[in-house]
Every structure is written in C-alpha cells, then in structure tokens.
C-alpha cells in the first residue's frame, strides 16, 4: 500500500526555483500496475524517486505498507528501500567490474545475508530470468536485453513489494524491449506492485491504470481502483 498526500517538491535551478511537484495526492493498492506518463519535466521521475525513497519531499506525507516514511532517518529509509523496493533503470546501472551473478548478489551482500544462502537464491533467480548460462559474464559481455534481465533479477532478489521502473525499455530495441516488459508484467501478475514511468504511449496503454502528469500535477488518472 502506497499513500502520498499533499506532496511538494522544489528544485533550485540556478536563480530559479522550479516547482517539480505541486500538491500531489497519489495512492496505489498492492498488486496494481500503474504507468506514469507525461512530457519531460512534468515531474514523473521525481514522483517515482519519492515513492522509491531516493528523494525526500519538501512537504506532505508518504506512507508505505503502514510505515510513515517521511519521519524516518537515512538509515531507516535505507532499510525500507532494501526490503520493500526494487528499481529498474533505463541505463541498467550494473557494476561493470562485477559478473552478472555478483551484480544480482549485491543487494543480498549489502543486507548481510549468509554466503551459503546467497548462492542458492542467486542461481534460482538467474535461472528464472533465463540468464543462468550468463552468470559469470561481465555486463560488457552481455546484450542490452540480457543486461536489463540481470538488473531485473537484482531488483527482485530481495522479494520487494514494489517494483519501480524508470523507462525500462528506453535503451533497448523493440524485440528485447517487449521481452523485458513481459518479464516485468509477469512479476506484477504474481502480486508485486508495478509503477512504471514511460513516455511511450503504446507501453503506457498496457497498464491497467494510467496516470498523466503535467507541470508537477496529476492531470489524469484512468483506471483507478480506490
């Protein structure tokens, strides 16, 4: 369960103060599939970052699974991020010196999971995403689609309740893009909440709920459940 109320966010760009989010109210039920669309600069990525606890709002409250996150300190927020949220980025953000396996293992390492347990979980996840045979390859030895699969594997290994995807196909050709979307949708069909930022209308139309943002406001919210 995600509930944002009266969210405000400002950025100082040179002399100018940019109002990135203006009094945004947004809720998502568990298991929802939401696409956030809108022109660049409309605040959709900022909203995603606030939902992902990467950014703090300047005003308003954010409740995630009954935790009031806006009052948590850095350490507590990191803990929530670690266990409840998985990120999928446009540029994959794999660590270039680590193998696919090690990249997927990274969240478990940071969380302090035992090595013996890690190995099994990593293998399982890699197999599930069809990249078991690429486990010992470095990112530069993988295709774009394979890299994004590794990134998705990494995002899901901690069994998060929410997956946040920021233009997950923006850096892929059409075929591997479709591939990746199907994988993410499959995760959603198993009960993980999926929030995806995109400016591809075709992609956005696949979502059951579509939010359109303009100038830091939610202008349209189609298919809302609650």
């Amino acid at each position: 369960m995600i509930r944002l109320q009266h969210i405000e966010r400002f950025f100082q760009v040179g002399e100018e103060k940019v109002h990135a989010l203006r009094d945004v109210d947004f809720s998502a039920a568990k298991g929802e599939y939401i696409a956030i669309m809108g022109p660049s600069g409309s605040g959709k990525s900022t909203l995603l970052n606030i939902v992902g606890l990467l950014d703090r709002p300047d005003g308003g409250t954010y409740e995630l699974d009954n935790i009031m996150t806006t009052t948590l300190n850095d350490k507590q927020q990191a803990d929530v991020r670690r266990h409840k949220i998985g990120f999928v980025f446009q540029f994959f953000h794999l660590v270039p010196r680590l193998t696919a396996e090690q990249n997927v293992e990274l969240p478990l390492v940071l969380a302090g999971v035992e090595k013996a347990e890690r190995k099994g979980r990593v293998q399982e996840t890699l197999q599930a995403f069809g990249i078991g045979d690429r486990a010992r390859h470095r990112p530069d030895q993988l295709s774009g689609g394979q890299r994004q699969r590794v990134a998705i594997a990494r995002a899901t290994i901690m069994k998060p309740t929410v997956i946040l995807a920021d233009e997950p196909t923006g850096n892929l050709d059409r075929a591997s893009g479709n591939d990746v979307i199907e994988i993410i949708e499959d995760l959603n069909s198993r009960g993980i909440t999926l929030i995806m930022v995109t400016h591809d209308p075709e992609l956005g139309d696949r979502a059951k709920r579509r939010i359109k943002m303009v100038d830091g406001r939610i202008e349209e919210d189609i298919g809302k459940q609650i």
Partner: peptide
C-alpha cells in the same frame, strides 16, 4: 545504485 539498493551512507 548502491544507495538505491539499500546502502546506508
């Protein structure tokens, strides 16, 4: 990335 994956400062 590490921060997004839940690293503390």
């Amino acid at each position: 990335l590490l921060r997004a994956l839940g690293s503390e400062k």
